[in-house]
Each structure stands twice: as structure tokens, then as C-alpha cells.
Simulated scan of single mutants.
Amino acid sequence: MAKPGERNLITDVPGLTVGNAGDARALTGVTVVLPERPAVAAADVRGGGPGTREIQVMDPANLVDVVHAICLSGGSAFGLDAAGGVMARLASRGVGFPVAGHVVPIVPAAILFDLPLGDKNWGEDPPYRELGKQAVENAGAGFALGNAGAGMGATAGPLKGGLGSASLVLDDGIAVGALVAANPTGHTVMADGRTFWAWALERDGEFGGNLPPQRGAADDPGAVTSAAGANTTIAVVATDAKLNQGQAQRMAIMAQDGLARAIRPVHTPFDGDTVFALSVGQRPVAGPADIARIGQAAADCLARAVARAVWLAEDAGGVRCYRSTLG
């Protein structure tokens, strides 16, 4: 039976580290996923207001077939600068493609909207490039969740959002993990204010030991009000199975269903929901049935990661967290 890995983090997938960096005054931050070796990657974008960088480079029809990092950032479009900082720090380490006497790392990125929280009066010098560099320096197998990294200024409907992660090790040893900066327009909790939409997927009390919902708990939790580009959930799923780009793309597509299991509504016109998929290992896959199992596990991990992000978040910027609303 599949069970969470030792840390219940995406870094239970061997060959991955994750680094966070944040600006406490601005209530914003950056999270970087670093593979030990260049990784096969893909992406799936479902939201109506995405902010991304280097997405097309992962198209199987194009030349480049691996990436050197994935960058998730707050800051709306300003946050895309974080990937430049990640590139600069990786290049200084000699990580990237050798091109005409230079080293060029490939760092796809996605951003979320967290401008309302904190003091973001930074003038002409947004902090994201430096935060990207710091996140690379901070990378390791263990990392903070909740109000951390790209989730520092996140909100989840009416609640404080955050950074979440979860993992599963399948019965044949294949590891699958998810990392999410949960900042959705939609709700992660049912109308009762207590039950996570992802409650049935919880493992070992990882988001509070939710009981089955009471009758009526799954009613519409309330109207969604937002503005274009004002939210977005961004995520990375990974496995140590050896996938090609097409198979990684299918993993990313299936993983999006994890957002649908944890957020209602999801993929709205106001969100830029984007999921990256990474293959960082050499475990063989036998065929489409294996890809289906891996994709299913990625979706479940991503749903759990969303709930963990909200469960572990703390009050910030005038927005109450889930635990503080329970009384």
C-alpha cells in the first residue's frame, strides 16, 4: 500500500532539494526546487490569469529537453525576476548548458498574486532577484511550510494560504511528491468552516485529523469575489520514475485534478493555476498503466499538499488562518 515518505515532503523523491527565501516586511517570498541533475520537465496551465516564464521550452517539439530548477514566487509579475536570480546563482556554480563559452541554466517559473499583504512599496528595486539567489543557497531536504517561501503572502479564499508539500511511496518503491504555493480564489474548506475539501485523502493527521463532514458541510461555502490576476495556485509534482517529456506532461495534467479535489472553485478566470512535473530518477516504467498510477499519486499528493499549506499557515497581514478560526 502506498504511504507517505519519511518527511512527507516532495524531497522524499530522491535527487531533489527545495529552498525558501522570504521578505517578512513585504510578506512575500520565493521557493526553488533544485534537482541534483538536469531533469525532464513539463507543465500544465489551467488558470485564466497565469504568470509564467520558460513554459514553452518544455514543449516536446522544442530543442531543450531538461531543466535545472523550477522557481515559484510571489509578487505577481514582479516575481518573475526571481528566476533570473536563480539562474545567476546556478550559473556561478557552473550549472546549466554550455553555450558559446557561457553557462545557461534553464529555470521555468510561475508567480502568484500576493500584492495586498505586507509593505510592497519597494520602488524600483523589487526583492525577487535577490530572494531567488537566497532560495538556492537555502536549498536542502528539509524546508518550512505554511507562511514560507512563495506561500508567505498567500491567501486561500477567506483564509491565510501558504506553502504545502506531501509525498507517497508506491508499493513498487516509486516515489511521488508535490509542492504547492496555495493562493486560490476558491475555498479549501467546506461550508462548515472545519472540513477540508481534501479530507478523505488525509494521512496520519497531517492536516488536523479531519472527521468525515456532517450533512450540509459540502454546500456552496459562499460567493467568490476577486479581480483578474488576483490569486493563483502554483505547484510542482515530481517522481523518481524515468519519464520522457510526454509522460511528464501527462503527470502534470493528471496532477491538476489534485487541485480540483482540494479547492472549490478552481481554475477560475482569476487564477493562473500552473503545475510543473519533474522526472528526476531512473526507476523504469512498464507502460501507460504505470503512468496512470504515478499521475493518480501526484494528484492525491497535490490535494494533500494544498490542505497542509492551509493547515500550517499562520495569521498574517490581517488575514486569519484556518486554525485561528476554529475557536
Rank of each mutant, 00 (worst) to 15 (best):
189 V>Q: 05
61 A>M: 06
142 G>V: 15
139 A>Y: 10
207 F>Y: 12
160 K>M: 08
215 R>Q: 15
275 V>I: 03
25 R>A: 14
199 W>L: 00
134 Q>K: 12
38 P>G: 03
19 G>T: 00
255 A>L: 11
208 G>W: 03
35 P>Q: 10
188 T>Y: 03
59 D>P: 14
193 G>P: 04
310 V>W: 00
62 N>D: 07
41 A>T: 00
148 A>E: 11
22 G>C: 11
224 V>G: 09
200 A>E: 15
6 E>K: 15
52 T>Q: 09
68 H>V: 02
56 Q>S: 15
33 V>Y: 08
196 F>M: 12
232 T>D: 11
73 S>W: 06
198 A>T: 01
275 V>N: 09
170 L>H: 02
204 D>S: 08
168 L>F: 14
187 H>Q: 12
71 C>E: 05
223 A>K: 05
260 A>T: 14
128 Y>P: 06
167 S>K: 06
210 N>C: 14
2 A>W: 00
186 G>H: 01
190 M>Q: 15
121 N>D: 15
255 A>K: 08
278 L>S: 05
103 V>Q: 07
123 G>E: 04
175 A>R: 02
270 F>L: 00
297 A>W: 00
296 Q>S: 12
235 A>T: 03
15 G>T: 07
302 L>K: 04
214 Q>Y: 13
184 P>Q: 08
7 R>S: 08
224 V>P: 01
148 A>P: 12
19 G>M: 07
223 A>W: 05
238 A>L: 03
102 H>M: 10
283 R>C: 04
78 F>V: 10
113 F>E: 02
33 V>K: 04
61 A>N: 11
196 F>K: 11
245 Q>D: 10
19 G>K: 00
5 G>W: 01
158 P>A: 09
34 L>R: 02
126 P>S: 06
277 A>E: 05
293 R>N: 04
144 A>M: 15
167 S>H: 05
108 P>F: 13
7 R>F: 06
79 G>I: 08
48 G>S: 13
11 T>V: 13
114 D>F: 03
221 P>D: 05
120 K>P: 00
32 V>Q: 01
72 L>C: 13
73 S>C: 14
212 P>I: 15
51 G>R: 14
265 P>D: 01
28 T>G: 12
295 G>C: 04
92 S>L: 15
